[in-house]
Design a protein around this nucleic acid. Structure first.
Length: 146
DNA sequence: TTTCTGACA
DNA sequence: TGTCAGAA
């Protein structure tokens, strides 16, 4: 079966690189004021796609997420600088998480009272299979002999 | 109408 | 950071 990854350079069905947001939209979505966004850009914390002076700023979806995460850490009491660093660390984790899940997640089963993630074999011996269980708001692993 | 830059509180 | 002015 053909994977949707072949539809474009990215691995998503939609080319997220083409999703751009004006400063007004970023304000509405993230709650961060335009004044703050311009200041953050001035400080080098975020980047706008359009660097031309006097032109309206354009932000990528990635930047939108980044701004959102910064506000989250800001609300947690971190300074702007610390919040930005935290957001950058979070950004570094995403590709790793995606790669791991994409290659390791074999499927998801829905039972009556729990959802089960098939995470494949534990090791090359293929004697045991490991599952991620989501039940009653809790998550845990379950290993079964094959 | 929205956004931009610069400036003041 | 918020807000205002004057210009795109």
């Amino acid at each position: 079966m053909k994977m949707m990854a072949e539809l474009n350079g990215s691995d998503a069905f939609i080319d997220t690189d083409k999703l751009i947001f004006g400063i007004g939209q970023v304000q509405q979505i993230t709650g961060v004021s335009g004044r703050q966004l311009r200041y953050w850009e001035e400080q080098g914390y975020i980047q706008s796609l359009n660097q031309k002076k006097g032109a309206a700023r354009e932000y990528s979806l990635h930047t939108l997420f980044f701004v959102f995460h910064v506000t989250r850490f800001l609300k947690d009491g971190f300074t702007l600088q610390a919040a930005v660093d935290k957001a950058k660390q979070f950004d570094r984790q995403l590709p790793v998480l995606r790669q791991f899940l994409r290659s390791q997640l074999k499927g998801v089963d829905f039972e009556d009272d729990e959802s089960i993630l098939d995470l494949g074999y534990v090791d090359a011996s293929h004697h045991q299979r490991i599952f991620g269980v989501v039940k009653d708001g809790e998550t845990y692993f379950r290993i079964k002999d094959v």
